[in-house]
């Protein structure tokens, strides 16, 4: 190993991420050509696609040229940030997506922070009290919440709190034409965000309970816990310094992988609650058969996940002494 320590580790990780991004870019090219024959064939079937749009697509992909040249053309366009023109909105797909990013980030970051904190705490409690009644109650609820599809959870919450009790709005991000400004506006947004965020918290939090619990059970079974007990440490110190610190490492690694699942949650929840983010955009693009936008969202999601994983890997490498010095996992 030429490079030792954290720098070497980081460089290897960044290199691997670059290769993965390139593979995703290629896959994105291939998927669109999976259909036998002309990729435009499927659009001919759709009466909503006009001749003008057809021409746009033809230019975008250079479909009259050989595959290799098409691929180079695709890469060149991509390098300039051109992910195609939205059929539906008649403007660059990337712009369409960019408009939606803040809303999605607002919802998902808020919900994920709450979910991770609550899930980790409850999971740690369940693991610490393994085999007790507390544990089985937490475990059963978490497993149920985690397994219920996010869109079903969304519909259930909507049915109860929006339709029956009418204490939360049906959807959207703010009350239309309300003229709210400043604090009033943000209060209105928070009120709209409550149900979709709760939905993500339930579903994602449930998973974190399961993850933390099993990591905790695993850590508690290790010999170093007995060592800590033999030192005569207080239970709280054993929990905090020995069990939890070791249990959190696998939980952190999983966070990166989990973002792929979080994306599914975003699409489902935003669709149910008409939250104007990227997830809802995917649904709208499906309904409008807006392929360039669909492809662009896939690319954005995939690359975002690779980058997030990279960040998590680097954090993990930084906090786990075994990786920092050894250089090898």
């Amino acid at each position: 190993m030429a490079l030792k320590g954290f720098a070497g580790f980081a460089i290897r990780k960044v290199g691997a991420a670059c290769i993965t991004v390139f593979a995703i870019v290629c896959a994105n090219f291939v998927i669109f050509r999976l259909v036998p024959g002309d990729p435009l064939r499927m659009m001919f079937k759709d009466p909503r696609v006009s001749a003008e749009q057809m021409q746009l697509v033809r230019e975008r992909f250079g479909l009259d040229k050989p595959l290799g040249e098409q691929f180079l053309h695709y890469l060149r366009e991509l390098a300039h940030g051109n992910l195609g023109i939205s059929f539906w909105q008649k403007r660059p797909a990337l712009d369409v997506i960019a408009d939606r990013v803040p809303q999605t980030l607002l919802l998902i970051v808020t919900a994920l922070i709450i979910a991770v904190i609550l899930g980790t705490i409850l999971g740690a409690i369940a693991g610490w009290k393994m085999g007790t009644r507390t544990d089985s109650v937490i475990l059963t609820i978490a497993l149920s919440l985690y397994s219920i599809p996010a869109f079903c959870m969304g519909i259930i919450l909507m049915l109860i709190f929006a339709f029956q009790l009418s204490i939360f709005p049906l959807g959207g991000i703010s009350t239309a034409a309300s003229g709210f400004t400043g604090f009033e506006y943000w209060k209105d947004v928070a009120w709209h965000m409550f149900l979709p965020a709760l939905c993500v918290v339930f579903w994602y939090g449930g998973e974190y309970v399961l993850l933390t619990r099993s990591a905790m059970v695993d850590a508690l079974g290790q010999d170093y816990i007995i060592t800590a007990r033999a030192k005569g440490l207080k239970e709280s110190a054993i929990l905090k310094n020995h069990a939890l610190r070791n249990a959190l490492l696998p939980v952190v690694t999983i966070t990166g992988v989990n973002l792929a699942f979080a994306v599914a949650g975003i699409i489902e929840v935003e669709t149910v609650f008409s939250w104007p983010g990227i997830g809802r955009l995917v649904y709208d693009a499906v309904m409008k058969r807006d392929y360039p936008v669909l492809q662009a969202t896939f690319l954005v999601f995939a690359v975002a996940i690779v980058l997030a994983n990279l960040v998590v890997d680097l954090i993990y490498g930084y906090i786990d002494p075994r990786i920092k010095v050894g250089g090898e996992e």
């Binding site: 010999d223 170093y224 800590a228 310094n241 610190r245 070791n246 490492l249 002494p321 075994r322």
Partner: peptide, 8 residues
């Protein structure tokens, strides 16, 4: 091997 806490 396992009696020491690996992250301390």
């Amino acid at each position: 091997q396992n009696a020491l806490n690996p992250v301390m």
